[in-house]
Simulated assay, not measured.
Amino acid sequence: MKGSRKGSLEERLQRLDAELAKKRAEDTVGDAAEEKAAESRKGYAVAMKLSSEFIAAVIVGAFLGYLLDRFVGTAPWGMIVLLMLGFCAGVLNVMRSAGMVASPHPVDRVAGRDAGSETKKDGA
């Protein structure tokens, strides 16, 4: 009786180990799928941020151009010029957010100079 009991216990342990191994394999597949979905959501979030920055700049430029034309009477030139400026500002904002263009250093912005245009002070 003791032998059959010990044998059945070992058999149950082996069956349990097999089931646990199968569950762990399924969990790793699920974890990989969740990581891929998280990366996809992150990409969508970045795309929405960049597109909203661009669209907002264009809309603000168009609105300011409309207001300028309305109050000063320069139709359609205010709208055209400020719409183009809004487009350029939108492109610049997207490039800065994407990391393609570095933002100016705050010290250089306050001093009104570009960091790359400084000359050496030793006369060379």
Rank of each mutant, 00 (worst) to 15 (best):
M1L: 03
K2Y: 05
K2I: 02
R5A: 02
R5L: 08
R5W: 00
R5V: 05
K6M: 00
L9G: 05
L9N: 12
L9Q: 14
E10D: 06
E10R: 09
E11Q: 11
R12V: 02
R12Q: 03
L13C: 03
Q14V: 02
E19F: 07
A21L: 13
A21F: 10
K22A: 11
K22G: 03
K23F: 01
R24W: 09
A25R: 15
E26I: 05
D27Q: 14
T28K: 15
T28M: 13
A32T: 03
A32Q: 09
A32S: 12
A33T: 00
E34I: 06
E35M: 02
E35T: 02
K36M: 14
A37F: 00
A37T: 00
E39V: 02
E39G: 11
E39T: 03
S40K: 01
S40Y: 00
R41Y: 12
A45R: 09
A45S: 12
A45L: 11
V46R: 10
A47L: 09
K49D: 15
K49C: 01
L50A: 06
S51H: 09
S52N: 15
S52Y: 07
E53S: 12
F54G: 01
I55Y: 12
A57E: 07
A57H: 01
V58G: 07
I59R: 07
I59S: 13
V60N: 01
V60Y: 10
G61P: 15
G61V: 04
A62P: 00
L64T: 05
Y66L: 09
L68P: 05
D69L: 03
D69N: 08
R70G: 07
V72N: 12
V72P: 04
V72G: 03
V72F: 05
G73T: 07
A75G: 03
M79Q: 12
M79R: 12
I80L: 12
I80F: 02
V81R: 04
L82P: 02
L82I: 04
L83D: 06
M84R: 13
L85W: 04
G86E: 01
G86W: 02
C88E: 14
C88N: 06
C88W: 07
A89F: 03
G90K: 08
L92C: 08
L92G: 03
M95Y: 11
M95G: 04
R96M: 15
A98S: 13
G99I: 06
M100F: 14
V101T: 09
A102S: 07
S103I: 08
S103R: 14
P104Q: 08
V107T: 11
D108P: 04
D108G: 08
A111R: 15
A111I: 10
A111V: 10
A111L: 15
R113W: 03
R113N: 14
D114F: 03
D114Q: 00
A115L: 10
S117Y: 06
S117N: 08
E118N: 09
K121T: 12
K121V: 04
K121G: 10
G123R: 13
G123V: 05
